[in-house]
Lab assay of single mutants.
Amino acid sequence: ATNIVGKVKWYNSTKNFGFIEQDNGGKDVFVHKSAVDAAGLHSLEEGQDVIFDLEEKQGKAYAVNLRIK
């Protein structure tokens, strides 16, 4: 899925991951530091509006192509 809109539920910059809540009511999506770095960001803030693509690997969904809304 592409261009999914959501809000950062939480992001832990020490542990380098967090979760994004989808605006469409879907399951929360894992986001890793690598996606944050690829977006040219240092971190994510709770409540921040983002747009992302959804990829699945080994049955787990995660956010890629992250951008600030």
Rank of each mutant, 00 (worst) to 15 (best):
A63Y: 00
A63W: 00
K60F: 13
V5Y: 11
K60T: 08
A63P: 01
A38W: 12
Y11S: 01
N3T: 05
E45A: 11
K9Y: 02
K57Q: 15
A63T: 03
Q48P: 02
L41N: 04
A39E: 03
Y11T: 02
G25Q: 10
S13R: 13
V5H: 13
E21I: 08
D49S: 09
F52T: 02
I51P: 00
L41G: 04
S43I: 11
Q22R: 15
Y62F: 12
L41W: 06
W10G: 02
T14H: 13
L41V: 11
K15G: 08
V31L: 07
W10D: 02
Q22M: 13
Q22P: 15
N3H: 06
N12K: 10
Y11K: 01
E45W: 06
A39N: 06
I68N: 07
S13W: 05
V5F: 11
E45I: 14
Y62S: 09
G59T: 07
S34N: 14
F19E: 02
G26F: 09
V5L: 10
E55H: 07
N12Y: 10
N3V: 05
S43N: 15
G47V: 03
G25S: 13
G26T: 14
S34E: 08
G47Y: 07
K7M: 06
G40H: 09
V29G: 01
G47E: 06
F19C: 03
V50W: 02
D53N: 06
D53F: 03
V31I: 08
I4S: 05
Y62C: 04
S13N: 09
N3D: 14
Q48K: 13
F52C: 03
Q58M: 08
V64N: 07
H42R: 10
A35K: 08
N12D: 07
V64M: 14
V31Y: 05
L54H: 07
N16R: 12
D37H: 13
G59F: 12
W10I: 04
G26C: 05
G40F: 08
D49R: 11
G26V: 09
K7H: 15
L44C: 02
G25E: 09
A1L: 12
V64H: 08
A39K: 03
